[in-house]
Simulated assay, not measured.
Amino acid sequence: MKRRMIVLLGLVLIAGVAVSQSEEMWKMRIHRSGETDEYIVADVDSITFHTVDTLIAPPMVLVPAGIFIMGDGVSSCGSNEREVTLTRDFFLGQHEVTNREYLEATQWAYDHGCVNADTTSVWDNLDGSTRELLDLDSDFSEIQFDGAGNFYLRESPSSYAQDAYPDGYDSSDHPVKEVTWYGAVRYCDWLSMLAGLPRAYEHSGDWTCNGGDPYAANGYRLPTDAEWEHAAQYDDERIYPWGNEGPDCSRANFYHTDYCVGWTSPVGSYPEAPVALGLSDMAGNVFDWCNDWWVCELGTNPVTDPTGPASGTRRALRGGSWSILDNTLRCAFRYGSPPYNGNVIGFRAARTAGQ
């Protein structure tokens, strides 16, 4: 605060001098990121300082546009192979959204009237929507609400979590669970609102993304089914996100004759299983929600910037989870779930580059 007062006093003194001097003599230059903005001080009526919301998007990785083969001829619902062209670079969350990140966003949304909550659930409060976003009334949920306006984290009381971490654990950096598809896209819209961007999703009807063209959306969104696979196998058509070597418990958190962990791991726990672009946990831990409606096979015709089926009852899931067998870890494995589920499902945000 002392520094701000000194700066403010200096600017006021400059403005006072500028009244009696040539405007060309007194200008203010603001330097940031190697660029300079210049202002005529006599044009400044007043200067005020104010706090701003500090919620920011999780770290993101740039995924270049390109052409790839979607499907591998082997994976469940990935046995069809087709050439896909993605014409736009995009950013994808380096890791799945964590409990801490989702809690901070939900607290912001609650404080600003964007959601309602009680001790059992968080539900939407924009555009007339009342969809459930986060199920708190589940042993799998590590986010809780005290009923008096505050969200907090806990260890899961489930036997899975307690057996996996008998000495206790910090749930902050574990991926959020029990978040519905609606809760995932709502989080993306909260990020857009804070960044001054248009919200990508409709919040009535089928919650269409940008009128059916997610690739042209300005705001944050979920990755399309095709974008997720492109990022996971970039750029050598690898079988698994880390390469072509088979899965084991050093590369991913999944079920391998027994549980590797038996619960989620903190994001980024497998540095020895790198995805080419530096993404983490593209296999195992929790499934990732995708933007598209899901249908098992997509056909073999080449396609550009695909958006999936026009309608459906399930949304696409990718990447497998801590409780599922190794066949789900393949880059081409595709699955779907009703959008109101969230048991072993999380997500990572995306955004089209250059928008």
Rank of each mutant, 00 (worst) to 15 (best):
T300Y: 08
G212E: 04
D53P: 15
E23Y: 03
G66C: 02
N291A: 11
Y340Q: 00
A316V: 06
A164P: 11
V12Y: 08
Y102G: 04
G211Q: 12
A353D: 11
R32S: 14
G284E: 04
Y259W: 15
A231V: 01
D43I: 00
G71F: 15
Y102N: 03
V295K: 15
H174K: 11
P309I: 07
S311K: 08
P157F: 08
E245H: 01
P166R: 01
E81G: 13
S158A: 10
E81C: 08
W293D: 01
L92C: 06
H95D: 10
Y39A: 08
R315L: 02
R334M: 08
N80L: 01
R32D: 09
G128V: 06
D206F: 14
D124R: 03
R131M: 09
F347I: 00
S75W: 14
L194V: 01
M60Y: 13
G34T: 06
T85N: 12
C77A: 11
P241L: 00
G219P: 12
S280V: 08
T352N: 07
Y110N: 05
A353V: 00
T36S: 11
V176E: 05
R154G: 03
W242D: 05
C260D: 11
L317H: 13
A252E: 00
D135Q: 06
T328Q: 00
C114Q: 12
A164Q: 03
S76W: 12
Q21I: 05
C260F: 05
V61E: 14
S269P: 00
D37K: 13
L62S: 02
V41G: 04
N253C: 00
E237Q: 13
V275H: 15
R154S: 02
G205T: 02
P339A: 01
H174D: 02
R238I: 10
S250Y: 02
S22G: 00
G268K: 15
P302Y: 04
V303Q: 11
T208R: 14
P58L: 09
D167P: 13
G342K: 11
D111Y: 01
L194A: 04
L279C: 07
E24F: 10
A200Q: 07
W26C: 13
I6P: 10
S76P: 06
T257K: 05
V84I: 15
V7A: 04
R29S: 05
E104K: 07
G312C: 10
Y335T: 07
T54A: 09
N341D: 03
R315Q: 01
E227F: 11
L136G: 05
L298S: 02
P157W: 08
G346D: 06
G342M: 04
Y215R: 12
T224Q: 01
S129D: 15
V44D: 15
L92A: 11
R4L: 05
C77G: 07
E142Q: 14
G336L: 00
G342Q: 13
T130N: 01
R348W: 02
P274F: 14
F145H: 11
L191I: 09
W123N: 12
A109C: 13
P271D: 07
T313F: 11
V84A: 05
L103N: 11
P338I: 07
L153K: 08
E35P: 01
L191R: 12
S75C: 07
R315N: 07
G246Y: 13
D292P: 14
N244H: 08
N116W: 13
D281M: 07
